[in-house]
Design a protein around this nucleic acid. Structure first.
Lengths: 336, 336
DNA sequence: GCTGTTTACTAAATCGATTTAGTAATGGAA
DNA sequence: TTCCATTACTAAATCGATTTAGTAAACAGC
């Protein structure tokens, strides 16, 4: 096992530990060529590898950040995470990834353990339920950035989609294409899940702006496994919607399953638009019209904000950064 | 920032650092209730949080492992990773994730930096190109497990799909369904990418076993962006295949793009089967017949093997664990 | 010849824990 | 009364680096 330490190198090279340390940190201002060579040789000979942990203890920086997400299996998360890792890679930082499954207990445990492990900063997809904990971190000026969700009234940097605009994009595209009876499909509507709230609110506003009524019946909010039956119920009523807006990939999948089982034809019988540009949008028949989130930009930005805070320990006023969604017109919404 | 150390707690509680340390490690064999209470109170009062880095230095264990993958964006990877993280979560370990993009330089840098950070073990989707480095690790008995790929002749634990069986499952299902002219679609065939080699070899063997000729022309091996043109060429020839076997999700996507553009009907004009049970397999029309890898079991197993090595520093003979694929019959292959 | 600066290094303290060896006080057995 | 065991703690060494303050030698300037 690895037992070679700096002291061993120092002994073999006939210099002090300090000198070896200087050498490794390239502080050669006053170091003879001869000494450098001897140290280099000793390192080579012993196969010495510095212990980063020891250095971290003294320097109070681990070059490691934590990223706490709901579930890496979710595509948005994976993409954001990849972008974060890319930024870290450029800076020789490493990323610890944790899945909370949207469980506040797990979130709390992870945050505390990662801080105990002295990570230099944290990017969190927050459950939104550990407000005291978030507060404590901001008070201590611990580098922290939220992604996807935010917590109202808390001075924490956050990187989010402009959900109002996303909903507006969906509604406008449908209305422009001649649809009026538009339904929305979402997971259960709970107040601390900001994107959900904003998307629904954005949907309502956009409908109103276009002079259309918001039909409560057309708002399907249910646990994912129960969405199909709700859709069944709605579509066996007298006046089912002519178009559906799925607020994320999970609900989109349910709608797709539903239309498959019921032989509803898209886009002839029903127009469909969704947030999240799923990987099969282009392959599916018909090709799916979607609203894409700039996931990589969001991840990159989150990482960059975090590094600003890590580097200057004081980034001034906090910011909530809103990213613009992009409408990708394909074939699941057709001009009526 | 966090400046409270064990010494502060000790001072406030009027005991020595050692006693506080014992307390935190629950070694109360001989500790008065009174002392325990005083320490607990001091910790509470100061808001003391142990510094895990300091502990790691002394204990030579960081409760952190590294997982080095090609790209978390790849679904197989994400799923394996999630399973690994679950196992780690149970043991209060953390996971550092790194993307190599199949680049040996990056792989080398990551392995070296993670070892410098004293991770307790490494799970690697190896590029296969850093043989010396892998060898050094095994010589030093450093806990290491490979996933997805392996390196021949190297005594490293590996968790892999039974690729021969997967190919056989595909061929047998097609042949049983009445197909004879079967093509295979793969990324470029390079010798160090074991799954690729094994799947193609398995395909050839299975064909021979069923008394069918292996037509070289039907083996499409090209970079992903060039696959479509190869398919175009093949399908404008006199005798195109009646069925296609895509060896992974990437090639499947290309085939799907190809059929979409050329209006080839699946399964009527062409049968299709692939390895990797993509998330849209069930939604696509027709529903896709696939061969699933037990990704979660594989991730779990990889983590468990790694922990065996971490815990007993000596796990005896190395093992290459082969996981069985599962044929999921859906509608992209139909009885002729 | 004396002082001051530059060069090339080193000793020792430090980071924040864990751990080992040891001590003082008490109680019980011979 | 003496000796040993048990209880309840502590001092100091340690993990493997970094960093600060300092020293000795060589050289330059007046």
């Amino acid at each position: 096992m690895q037992k070679v330490t700096m002291a061993d190198v120092a002994k073999l090279a006939n210099v002090s530990k300090s000198t070896v340390s200087q050498y490794l940190n390239k502080r050669y201002d006053y170091m003879s060529e001869e000494t450098k060579k001897r140290i280099a040789r000793a390192i080579e000979e012993l196969g010495y590898r510095p212990n980063f942990i020891a250095r971290s203890l003294k320097q109070k920086s681990t070059a490691t950040i934590g990223v706490i997400v709901f579930n890496i299996l979710h595509m948005l998360t994976t993409q954001v995470l990849r972008a974060i890792e890319d930024v870290c890679q450029e800076r020789d930082f490493h990323v610890i990834v944790c899945n909370t499954d949207d469980n506040p207990e797990k979130e709390k445990k992870y945050i505390e353990m990662l801080r105990a492990k002295q990570v230099d900063g944290l990017i969190v997809f927050p459950t939104g339920k550990n407000v005291e904990l978030y507060e404590r971190m901001t008070e201590e000026q611990f580098p922290l950035v939220f992604v996807d969700r935010m917590v109202p009234d808390l001075p924490v940097d956050a990187v989010l989609l402009d959900n109002y605009q996303a909903a507006k994009l969906a509604v406008d595209h449908l209305v422009d294409s001649g649809y009026e009876r538009i339904g929305i499909v979402t997971p259960p509507i709970v107040s601390h899940v900001i994107p959900r709230i904003e998307r629904i609110e954005g949907f309502k506003r956009a409908m109103t702006e276009r002079g259309l009524p918001v039909v409560e019946e057309y708002i399907i909010g249910a646990e994912i496994p129960r969405i199909k039956e709700e859709l069944n119920r709605l579509f066996s009523s007298d006046h089912p919607p002519q178009a559906l807006f799925a607020i994320n990939d999970l609900t989109l999948t349910e709608v797709l399953n539903f239309v498959k089982e019921t032989n509803i034809n898209i886009p002839d019988d029903l127009a469909l638009i969704s947030i999240d540009d799923v990987p099969f949008a282009n392959i599916y028949t018909p090709r799916l019209t979607t609203i894409a989130q700039p996931t990589f930009e969001m991840g990159r930005k989150a990482a960059e904000r975090l590094f600003m805070k890590i580097e200057q320990k004081e980034a001034g006023r906090h910011q909530v950064l809103r990213f613009s969604p992009t409408l990708i017109k394909r074939d699941s919404v057709k001009q009526q």
